[in-house]
C-alpha cells in the first residue's frame, strides 16, 4: 500500500517537472511530510529520479539545437564546485537542520516566483496600455 503512495508522489513530482516547473521542489516535501521519508533520503531520491528524465530531455533538446553550450559552461563550472560542497555536507548535518534549511529555501523560492509572476503581469499590462 505504501508503494502506491510512493508512485503517486513520483507521478506528481514528474508531471510538474515535465512541465518545466521544478518538480523536485515539491517531490521532496511530499515525501517527507506525507510519507515520513527522511530528509536526506528524499533529497537523494529526487536527485536520482531526475537523471533518467534529464538524459532523454538533453538528447531531444540537443537535437533541436536548444542547448546553449557556452551558457551551460558559464553556469555549470562554478555551480559544480559548490554542488560538491553542498552534497558533502547534506548527509552529515543534523536531519532536523537540513529539514528546516530546506523549508526556508522552499519558502524563499516560492515567494520569489510569485513576485516574478506579479512583476511580469504588471509589465505586460503596461505594454498593453501603450
Amino acid at each position: 500500500m505504501q508503494y502506491l503512495w510512493y508512485i503517486i508522489a513520483g507521478l506528481i513530482g514528474g508531471v510538474i517537472g515535465g512541465m518545466g516547473m521544478g518538480g523536485g521542489t515539491l517531490l521532496i516535501p511530499i515525501l517527507t511530510i506525507f510519507l515520513g521519508v527522511e530528509q536526506v533520503e528524499a533529497q537523494l531520491t529526487n536527485l536520482i529520479s531526475f537523471l533518467p528524465m534529464a538524459i532523454v530531455a538533453v538528447i531531444i533538446h540537443a537535437k533541436n539545437k536548444r542547448i546553449d553550450f557556452k551558457a551551460m559552461l558559464w553556469v555549470s563550472v562554478p555551480a559544480l564546485v559548490t554542488a560538491c560542497v553542498g552534497a558533502y555536507f547534506a548527509p552529515r548535518v543534523k536531519s532536523e537542520w537540513l529539514s528546516k534549511g530546506f523549508g526556508a529555501f522552499l519558502t524563499l523560492l516560492g515567494v520569489a516566483m510569485i513576485i516574478k509572476i506579479i512583476v511580469q503581469k504588471i509589465k505586460s499590462k503596461r505594454r498593453a496600455n501603450k
Partner: peptide, 23 residues
C-alpha cells in the same frame, strides 16, 4: 539509498515527466 522505495518513486517521476511534457 533505500532503493526499493526510491526506485518506485523514480518510476513515478519518469511516467509523470512524460505526461507533464506532453500535457
Amino acid at each position: 539509498w533505500e532503493w526499493k522505495s526510491g526506485l518506485v518513486v523514480t518510476a513515478g517521476v519518469v511516467v509523470g515527466g512524460i505526461v507533464g511534457a506532453l500535457a
